[in-house]
């Protein structure tokens, strides 16, 4: 990246992030987005963090991870425990709780990355799955955080501003990491591990980095979730939750940050729109899912997509990897 381009990019980023924030605030204030949908917007922010962070391991590092909900759970419970136990000023306590959530998940990310150094592909997917289930099983049996009954009375710290800010930080940090030498090395592991090693890349270091980075933001998302819902139950953080996030990543395109953001918006809003269908909602969701995967790989749809892409000019750098 040339330095001038970089400055231009920085300006564009800043203006669009600020504009997005102001726009949402205006829509909230004017009542165009009602309280119910304000909650959905907040969920979108949390899902953006979850999706973009999972993209780090599944999209950029190229490892199928089925335990993202486990990191989220760890972050949620740790941060909730922190802010329930210590009664500090919210201004100090919440950022600290977010950090605690992120760091706790990061520690677990470190543990999960250890088998990742030896195993790849489906085996690693099973390990991450098993890990997520272990976290949930342990939480179920920890009476100090409510066990199966759930953990209630968590202070309501999460506001739109906080969620938006964290989502922005996650997206920018991920993009920035990917556009650095560390990010390139992570992608090289996905592309060809043996060639990466032969080119001097310590693949273990970068697998480790990707897992820890990914877990950190999942933990932050969990912390936001905890202080928004004010009630946690182990039953939320199931394999289904991990899969829900993975679906968002795959739909947005592996290794595309912009795609992850767009697909988290769509897949958070879509179930809400389908809510009127009540019983048919999940059925419709599964059909849409299968159709999307099928069409993604059908040649006619591919050709049509290429045309649309052509109309909007060439994709940005990050999309080269998708």
């Amino acid at each position: 990246m040339k330095k001038n381009d970089f400055k231009k990019q920085l300006l564009i980023d800043f203006v669009s992030i600020a504009a997005g924030y102001v726009l949402m605030r205006v829509l909230f204030a004017a009542g165009i987005i009602n309280t119910y949908w304000q909650g959905i917007v907040l969920n979108i922010c949390i899902n953006v963090i979850l999706t973009v962070s999972l993209n780090m391991t599944s999209g950029f590092l190229g490892e199928l991870a089925l335990g993202h909900a486990g990191f989220m759970a760890a972050g949620a419970y740790a941060s909730a425990f922190f802010s329930k136990t210590l009664k500090l000023l919210p201004v100090i306590e919440f950022p600290a709780a977010l950090l605690i959530g992120g760091l706790t998940a990061m520690l677990l990310g470190f543990i999960v990355s250890l088998p990742a150094l030896r195993l790849r592909g489906d085996y690693l997917a099973i390990i991450t799955l098993a890990f997520g289930e272990i976290v949930r099983n342990l939480l179920k049996n920890m009476d100090i955080v409510g066990g199966t009954k759930g953990y209630s009375g968590i202070p309501a710290y999460t506001t739109f501003t906080w969620a938006y800010l964290m989502a922005v930080i996650c997206v920018l940090a991920t993009r920035s990491l990917i556009n650095s030498r560390q990010g390139r090395s992570i992608i090289s592991v996905r592309e060809d591990e043996i060639a990466a090693e032969a080119s001097g890349v310590n693949t273990n270091t970068y697998k480790f980095l990707a897992f820890v980075f990914s877990a950190f933001f999942a933990g932050v998302a969990g912390a936001l979730y905890a202080h928004y819902m004010r009630f946690l139950q182990p039953g939320v953080f199931t394999l289904d939750k991990s899969i829900e996030i993975l679906v968002m990543v795959v739909l947005g395109g592996m290794g595309s940050i912009r795609g992850s953001v767009i697909s988290s918006v769509i897949l958070t809003v879509l179930p809400e729109l389908l809510r009127s269908m009540s019983d048919y909602r999940m059925l419709a969701y599964s059909v849409v899912l299968i159709m999307m995967m099928l069409s993604k790989h059908s040649e006619t749809v591919q050709a049509a997509l290429e045309k649309v892409k052509g109309m909007f000019g060439r994709g940005r750098k990050e999309e080269v990897h998708s």
Binding site: R181, A196, H321
Partner: peptide, 24 residues
């Protein structure tokens, strides 16, 4: 064994990583 979905330049930058040392 190239990094197929990376650009030609990025392929070379990967091995030139040995010449850089800026931190995370």
């Amino acid at each position: 064994r190239l990094f197929k979905d990376m650009t030609v330049l990025e392929n070379v930058l990967i091995s030139l990583d040995t010449q850089a040392d800026y931190g995370l």
